[in-house]
Amino acid sequence: MTIAPDDARRDARLYQVMRDFVSSMDDTLPGKFEITKEGIVHDMMSPARPHELTVLRVRKRLEEVLPEDLVAHTGTPDVEDAPEGIMRHPDVMVIAEADMEGEGSFDPRTLLAAIEVVSHSNPDNDWVSKMRDYPLLRVPVYVIFDPRTASGAVLSDIHPTPTGPRYATRKDFVYGEDITIGEWTVSTSGLPQYT
């Protein structure tokens, strides 16, 4: 699809309006705001304990195998590509510590992997929207942990398609198996499930 200059300016203005709104809501409303190609996503529910425990265990397991200059980061800021009109906040990001320096959002091209734990209240955000957005952001590996089903997937190998870049390789797993995220292997045993 070709975007004329007027369309590009309009898209940039719309993104800035959404970005300003999200920034103004940070401490006002509960939950997490993200910006996708379709608009603003608001996950109103605070993460459940199984979600947060999964994030913690995955982060700790990754940090045991990552080289010293890489981290499994679970905090802020967001990952943002304003020209694409996307701002996401992965549950865990594998990134070089040096790439965390500076101000503002992280450049998505510095991420080595984005890891998400499926929300009980909005699973399509992880399984559909982020599966589309992360290859657009050029994040080379996207991993989904789904406590609803005790399973997940590792997606990699971005390739062009008529509808935009997509992951070409998908390796499904069930909890209890070892998985490879980029160059690093971690266990998925002992991860909690939603009840």
Rank of each mutant, 00 (worst) to 15 (best):
M44F: 13
M45H: 08
A48F: 15
A48Y: 13
R49I: 14
P50D: 11
P50T: 08
P50G: 07
P50M: 09
H51I: 14
E52K: 04
L53K: 14
T54M: 10
T54A: 12
V55W: 05
V55Y: 01
L56F: 15
R57I: 08
R59G: 14
K60D: 14
K60S: 14
R61D: 00
R61M: 10
R61N: 05
L62Q: 00
E63C: 09
E64C: 12
V65P: 07
L66M: 08
L66S: 01
L66D: 03
L66V: 06
P67E: 06
P67W: 05
D69A: 10
D69M: 11
D69Q: 13
V71L: 14
V71N: 04
H73G: 02
T74V: 07
T74L: 11
G75Y: 07
G75A: 04
D78H: 13
V79R: 02
V79A: 09
E80M: 11
E80A: 10
D81C: 09
A82T: 06
P83C: 07
P83R: 06
P83H: 01
P83W: 02
E84M: 15
R88Y: 09
R88G: 01
R88S: 03
H89D: 04
P90E: 01
D91T: 07
V92I: 03
V92D: 02
V92E: 03
M93W: 05
M93Q: 09
I95E: 03
I95H: 07
E97K: 14
E97V: 15
E97G: 02
A98I: 01
D99Y: 03
D99M: 15
E101R: 14
G102Y: 08
G102K: 13
G104Q: 05
S105F: 14
F106V: 07
F106Q: 01
D107A: 05
D107S: 02
D107C: 13
T110Q: 09
L111H: 02
L112I: 08
L112F: 06
A113H: 02
A114V: 00
I115G: 07
I115F: 02
I115Y: 07
I115C: 15
E116L: 11
V118F: 06
S119G: 11
H120A: 15
H120Q: 06
N122S: 09
P123W: 09
D124M: 06
D124I: 01
N125E: 14
D126W: 10
D126K: 08
D126T: 03
S129D: 12
M131E: 13
M131I: 13
R132Y: 07
R132S: 11
Y134S: 02
Y134P: 12
P135V: 04
P135R: 00
L136H: 10
L137H: 07
L137Y: 00
R138L: 08
R138K: 13
V139E: 01
P140W: 01
V141R: 01
V143Y: 03
I144F: 13
D146H: 01
D146C: 05
P147R: 02
P147F: 08
